[in-house]
Write a protein that binds this DNA or RNA. Structure first.
Lengths: 226, 226
DNA sequence: AGTTTGAGTGCACATCTGTACACTCGCTAG
DNA sequence: CTAGCGAGTGTACAGATGTGCACTCAAACT
């Protein structure tokens, strides 16, 4: 029972979908993706630090030594995961920007967008929120960089609003950080809700809106500079 | 070269300080503390998940199997660490409560208190901020519970202020969470500052104050309920 | 006094880890 | 058509890991 599938020389990926398209690079990239997916799945309930190369390869359906055809180390795999997650995040802000920008409905729309993207990519969001503060590895560093970029983008977007037009960038960044942090807290809350509990979902979203309102209600009364 | 120090049957702890007091329980508790200290030190740059029993015992100066005289598992050690950290936190809020409560200087005082306690117990604060979101273990759960208690305490304290006297508890909790989250973000910032960089320290504290002011400036304009 | 207790030791073992090495064999380039 | 590149394989090994077992020997109890 140790070798159930005979002498299959192909990774498990190929059995799932997409029958053809067997160019060599395509194949390689597909097992690479299998490694990323396997890692992300294993990371559902554990930290990246305690995650072995062997586990990942086993889960991906290849032999341990083949790992090095794709990454030189686990850390590199981790950084690749961050990049993948980054794409998810960028997709989210793109969605958010193409929303109605009525000053009042903006909070609701943003929270809704966040909610849908979190539910559509739970693994990615779990990964960032978990590893954000987890140690001094290249992974945490990469996440830090990415999150700072994200926050800066938000600051630029914020600068377009009336009240904020003449805030110093320093204050804008502080506000953006506050918002990002609140959003990430909401992400964690959402990931704690067990699947299908719509009531808890709605409660969490209401809390998220309340948080944002609390932050933003002070904006018109903020005296910039110091 | 495998047994450099002869036949010493005592853990490294006993060589450092406190010569006497060799009652049996005292001894036991002292190596227990050595285990906790060793773990905390090793956790300076790695996650709790990737931390082996053998490493900890080696660092504490005892043999691996002796570990079980103190904890039945690493998770239990982790929870004990959380409890230890909890004492540090309680000490901090006790300090904070015995501060001048002028409405204006309160932010400065709170940030100052936070700063001093973080610098005095960096390991503890690094531990909580690291492990807070790190996985599904008993450790993260214990931290979650403790942080929620902490936030609730703060909510009660907040209720004593004029503006907040008639806020619904729900809103109070939301505000308290916002403040706690901002404080924890500041803790992370502080731990990132390399030792002795007073300028960076002061910049971080100024940012912390700005964050709190941004949150609190909205308080008088908040319409409770919904 | 003699006996018990329990924190510590050392050895042993099965399991898992990362990675070196030599290999197969199908896609791709000449 | 043929050569070879390279993604995959299997074997192998040294080191680390958690834990069981039998032990020592000083403090604590009778």
């Amino acid at each position: 029972m140790d070798h159930p599938e005979g002498v299959s020389t192909l990774p498990d990926v190929s059995q799932a979908e997409m029958p053809a398209a067997v160019s060599r690079q395509e194949r390689k990239q597909r097992t690479r993706q299998a490694l990323l997916d396997a890692a992300l799945e294993l990371l559902a309930d554990r930290g990246f630090g305690s995650l072995s190369l062997r586990e990942v390869t086993k889960h991906a359906g290849i032999v341990p030594t083949a790992f090095y055809r794709h990454f030189t180390s686990m850390d590199e795999l981790g950084v690749a995961l961050v990049e993948e997650t980054t794409r998810t995040l960028r997709g989210m802000i793109r969605s958010a920007r193409t929303e109605p920008v009525s000053h009042h409905g903006m909070i609701d729309a943003s929270v809704r967008t966040l909610y849908e993207h979190v539910r559509a990519h739970e693994d990615h969001f779990r990964f960032v929120t978990r590893e954000r503060y987890a140690g001094t590895g290249p992974v945490a560093r990469a996440i830090g960089v990415e999150l700072r970029l994200f926050s800066s983008d938000l600051a630029i977007d914020l600068a377009r609003f009336d009240h904020l037009r003449e805030w110093p960038t320093e204050d804008l960044h502080a506000l953006a950080d506050l918002i990002v942090t609140a959003m990430l807290a909401t992400v964690v809350d959402l990931l704690d809700v067990r699947h299908g509990d719509r009531e808890a979902d709605e409660r969490t979203l209401e809390l998220a809106r309340k948080r944002l309102r609390m932050i933003l209600v002070g904006v018109p009364h903020w005296r910039p500079s110091a």
